[in-house]
Computed example of a mutant assay.
Amino acid sequence: MRRFRFDETRQGYSNKDTILYALGLGFGSDPLSRDELRFTYEEDLRAVPAMVNILAHPGLWVQRPELRLGWQKLLHAEQRFDILRPLPPAGEVIAKYRVTGVVDRGAAKGALLYLRKDLRDADGQPVARVSSTYMLRGDGGCGMFGAPEPELAPLPERAADHVLRQPTLPQQALLYRLSGDMNPLHASPELARQAGFDRPILHGLCTMGIACRALMAALCPGAPERLRHLSVRFSRPVYPGETIQTEIFALDAGEIRFRSRVVERDVVVLDRGRAELLPAVLAASNEMEVLR
């Protein structure tokens, strides 16, 4: 794993792709909302910041035979992204991937793998940094190298400052997978049962995108360029058709924390969430377009 190298990945995307991604997160549920139309109608179209998660995907690289990973037991544990330049609604992006570390927890406990994506535009300008943490349940004892991502801190023990609910559609996973993640776990009832689920589950990155939508609606409506960072821990799966409730905590010094739960089962599905927003004045300044 230490010596594995990814090929550079390029992807062109259009307004149609950007709208399809937003629809997969539930945008457009109120077709008369001006804020919703910013993401679902080509006039003055904006890209949802969480779209950086799915652009220029490297494919099913974990199945590469030389890696000898037990990919069938892989779980997506955490996800983070930092926006360095607002993502345009159409264009071309280039991704460079690398494994930044592996933490071996022992033969019985598996391992954690940390993957980094650096996303640039066609001119080579940085767009985003995206980090994924995967739990390799079947690969304990594989050895370790590199460094883990910083630990995500627990949330405060108090009532949330904002609470937003969003029902998902029974066909939500079927719609979201058209944005690139075609894993049959999210479509095939038979394969979902083989993996231990009652039925196909919603993509974890779709749930994260829904939380991103809630954060923007509560804290920066109509101004997606203000969102500069999002990080979450995936704690439980979501079944399409369930209602996702996002609970947002505003802390001292402008720190924003959040979690999401499924209302029907009262289980937390995203935990230890953290977000960063640019002040409105800085977000409007061309000089602050690229963040360091």
Score class of each variant (00 low, 15 high):
G124Q: 06
H76G: 08
P86T: 15
G124N: 09
D252W: 08
D44E: 14
S285T: 03
V262P: 11
V103N: 11
R199W: 04
Y41N: 03
L45K: 09
Q79L: 15
H186P: 03
M182E: 10
L32E: 10
G141K: 08
E157Q: 14
Q72C: 00
R98A: 06
P240W: 08
Y97N: 11
Q11I: 01
D181V: 01
P200E: 10
S260F: 11
Q194K: 12
L112E: 03
E276A: 14
K96I: 01
T100V: 10
R137W: 02
M216S: 06
R199T: 08
D118W: 08
G70L: 02
C220W: 05
V290T: 14
W71C: 09
G254R: 12
P49A: 07
D252S: 13
F145T: 09
A218Q: 02
P237F: 10
L251Q: 11
A187I: 00
Q63L: 12
T9R: 11
T133E: 15
F39V: 08
L251T: 05
A122C: 07
G28E: 06
P31W: 02
E157N: 14
N286Q: 09
L291P: 00
V102I: 14
Q194Y: 05
S231E: 15
A153T: 15
V62M: 12
G26A: 12
E43Q: 15
V262F: 11
L178N: 04
H229N: 03
R64M: 08
K16G: 07
G196M: 04
L23R: 11
V262A: 12
R265E: 12
D271M: 03
K117V: 15
A192H: 13
C220V: 11
E247G: 12
L205G: 07
D118H: 09
P240A: 07
E151K: 12
M51N: 06
P221H: 05
V269W: 04
H229M: 09
E287T: 05
F234W: 06
S179D: 01
K96H: 15
S231T: 07
P200Y: 12
Y134W: 14
Q63S: 15
L191C: 03
E92R: 13
M144L: 07
G140I: 00
I94Q: 10
H203T: 04
D271L: 13
E276M: 01
V268M: 10
R265M: 01
G59M: 04
V267L: 10
M144C: 07
D181I: 02
C220Y: 01
R193Y: 05
L45F: 10
T40K: 12
E66G: 02
C212H: 07
L202D: 01
A217S: 11
S132D: 10
G12L: 08
A22H: 08
F249I: 00
D181Y: 10
E276H: 04
A107H: 02
H229L: 13
A211G: 13
A159I: 01
A159P: 09
P150V: 01
H162L: 00
P31T: 05
S132P: 02
F39I: 03
A214H: 13
L277D: 00
E42Y: 11
A253Y: 12
D118V: 13
A223M: 09
D121P: 12
V267Q: 06
R213M: 09
T243L: 13
A160Q: 02
R116Y: 05
L219R: 15
R165Y: 01
L178I: 04
C212N: 15
S131Y: 04
L113S: 02
R105K: 15
V238G: 08
N286L: 14
I94C: 05
G28C: 11
V48Y: 15
